[in-house]
Design a protein around this nucleic acid. Structure first.
Lengths: 195, 195
DNA sequence: ACAACTTGCATCACGAATGTCGCAAGTAGC
DNA sequence: GCTACTTGCGACATTCGTGATGCAAGTTGT
């Protein structure tokens, strides 16, 4: 386990490649190593020097993004802050990250991946947040914290998909987070309406 | 434009291939023609005889699924039935179809595709349904019919993803549709709660 | 039974993408 | 300035998926 010392430019190259990979794969998930390298402004062989295989590159990308997402959620202190406040904060933070790392956060990973473990950790904290919300009487009767989280995830996904489809229009994370949480809690219907 | 007469077994083969393609590609979107052919119990060359290219196969698959979905929505008479009733009916019908044709309804198509036009038609009818719902006062102020439809689609997608992940557990389309519409209209939160 | 059609199988050509290597040139760090 | 590291470039082998073709065998429909 000898840690090879890296020169400064080397670390920068890795960053550049990861960012370019995200950009490229987000637009076109089947993009080749060639295209990714071109987007990063480096030769294809250089990419292979840093990431032995395509799979390794994507794994590194997913791990990097998962770390960012985990930090973004933690920044909302979901365990201690009042549930609704934490929910809003975590949403705004997560949206910003997911918008920048759309591909990396959705990438299909090989089982046993490190990124998968981190994502599982996020889901866990998210579930606990909704449980706290439920305990505080914030969830309608009949709604489990698990279902709430699934709906929550679905809304985040939808919002990011839409934002990615319109890269020209500006994205106000706070406004979108507000609308998202509002919809999550109250839906789109008039309070009285029912089947 | 001479319509070639087909023998009965030929038509059956096409059906078999399409169903096998759906099954196979749903589990593994990158599956090869070889794997699809194997799943259909035919030789790879036979698949190529029916569908010149892989793209053509997927296009046919998407078209087939889009037709089914369109019919499923129409069966709810979304233009004439009271909005909430139509919404529920269309949901239950659509869920059943989307569960059987998960890959085909999500497949990325080449622009100008026939299936894409049908899907656009569905979206249009769906939007009109939500507009009717809005006109009837069924949507909260501030909620546009477009946002309502986006949330609706997101919920459908989420529910089907989850169902596909647990193929062993039975799927009660009616129960799920009820929960889905309920959540769509009222969200997961307690009525009074707000930010 | 006969003709037309369809399928399976083996084979081939082709292109695309991946991954590896060696060498020359350039750059960071001391 | 010297050394060690990194990069770009060109070349190569390999693998994989696609698509086409010819032929023998089997099936359908009449």
């Amino acid at each position: 386990m000898s840690e090879t010392r890296l020169r400064a430019d080397s670390a920068r190259t890795v960053q550049t490649i990861l960012e370019a990979a995200e950009r490229t794969l987000n637009r076109k998930p089947t993009a080749t190593m060639e295209e990714i390298a071109a987007a990063a402004g480096v030769a294809r062989t250089t990419v292979h020097r840093r990431f032995a295989t395509r799979e390794a590159l994507i794994a590194a990308l997913a791990l990097w993004a998962a770390q960012q997402m985990s930090d973004a959620v933690d920044a909302a202190r979901p365990e201690t802050t009042p549930p609704l406040i934490a929910l809003y904060q975590a949403t705004a933070n997560a949206l910003a990250v997911k918008l920048s790392w759309g591909f990396a956060t959705n990438a299909t990973l090989a089982p046993g991946n490190e990124a998968e473990r981190i994502q599982a950790g996020i889901v866990e904290r998210c579930d606990r947040l909704f449980e706290r919300l439920a305990d505080a009487g914030g969830l309608r009767p009949g709604v489990t914290s698990l279902w709430a989280r699934r709906v929550y995830y679905a809304l985040i996904h939808e919002v990011c998909q839409d934002a990615a489809a319109h890269p020209d229009t500006p994205f106000d994370a706070d406004a979108v987070a507000t609308q998202l949480v509002e919809t999550l809690l109250h839906g789109v219907g008039t309070p009285g309406t029912t089947l």
